[in-house]
């Protein structure tokens, strides 16, 4: 119940503001779909942004993917040795990296690196009136800034995720090779022997959803930045936190849905 004389709230101030934010974010996402299918398409800007996103994250994904593959193999080996099943190591790693680790690690890295950068860049343009400058020059800023970036993250993150899977498997191969002198072809054959088409399909779907989420959240937070430079920092920060939270939520839902398909 609101105090007499104060602004009336439907529930409480916090709940009302959460619901308003949710409805704004929904409207923002709906607007993206409306704008994405109408010309002009700004293809060059989408390519530029994709290149930028790929370049920004490539080194970090290479190092992280390689280390995850290597360390995960090292950690899994003792448990499998106890059951005399070390020959299953490539299959285990293949399933783990393709199904879960590759897309998830890539998405988390990109949420930190790309999501924050999109939030800060658009936020800074918002508070310095650059977005209004586009509007008064008869340029649609939503289409030029938001649509291009969301499409770029949606298209690029699955590619980065695929790259992360390759690097992760290579890291795992290095460990297996030095421990068991296994050849690379034999390793990859084993690694993919237990991976189904549905696993790869799920992995790609997840990456597309994660990429879309990172783009939309980063752009939404930046586009709605207020309070000057402080607002820019907050937009970048919130872009990372909200993206990461949604990525874990989506991972859970997609895995559950795909498991239903697996049982059919």
């Amino acid at each position: 119940m609101s105090k007499p004389g104060s602004r009336p709230y439907l529930f409480t101030r916090t709940i009302d503001s959460f619901l308003t934010g949710l409805s704004d974010a929904f409207a923002f996402t709906v607007r993206f779909f409306k704008e994405a299918f109408l010309p002009p398409f700004h293809v060059r800007e989408i390519i530029n942004q994709s290149f930028e996103i790929g370049l920004k994250s490539l080194s970090l994904i290479t190092v992280t993917g390689f280390i995850i593959g290597l360390v995960f193999t090292k950690q899994s080996r003792p448990s499998l040795e106890d059951f005399g099943a070390t020959s299953w190591l490539p299959s285990l790693i293949g399933i783990a990296i393709i199904r879960a680790l590759g897309p998830l690690v890539t998405a988390l890295i990109c949420a930190g690196k790309v999501g924050s950068s999109i939030g800060a860049e658009i936020g800074s343009m918002k508070v310095t009136e650059q977005i209004e400058a586009m509007e008064v020059s008869a340029i649609n800023p939503f289409k030029y800034l938001v649509t291009t970036r969301v499409l770029a993250t949606t298209l690029t993150i699955p590619i980065l995720s695929l790259y992360c899977v390759c690097v992760g498997l290579y890291g795992s191969y290095i460990n297996v090779h030095f421990e068991e002198a296994t050849g690379i072809i034999s390793f990859y054959q084993n690694a993919f022997s237990s991976v189904s088409f549905l696993d790869i399909y799920t992995s790609v779907i997840k990456s597309v959803v994660f990429g879309f989420t990172i783009g939309v959240v980063g752009c939404y937070k930046g586009y709605n930045a207020t309070q000057g430079t402080r607002g820019v920092g907050m937009a970048a920060n919130k872009a990372v936190i909200v993206s990461m939270f949604l990525i874990f939520l989506e991972e859970m839902v997609i895995v559950q849905v795909m498991n239903w398909f697996r049982h059919f």
Binding site: S124, M125, T128, E129, E132, A133, E135, V136
Partner: peptide
Amino acid sequence: DALRLRVGFSFQSSALYD
């Protein structure tokens, strides 16, 4: 948009694309 092409706006902060 057509009207905006006929009306220029010079911002206080200049609003140049940095």
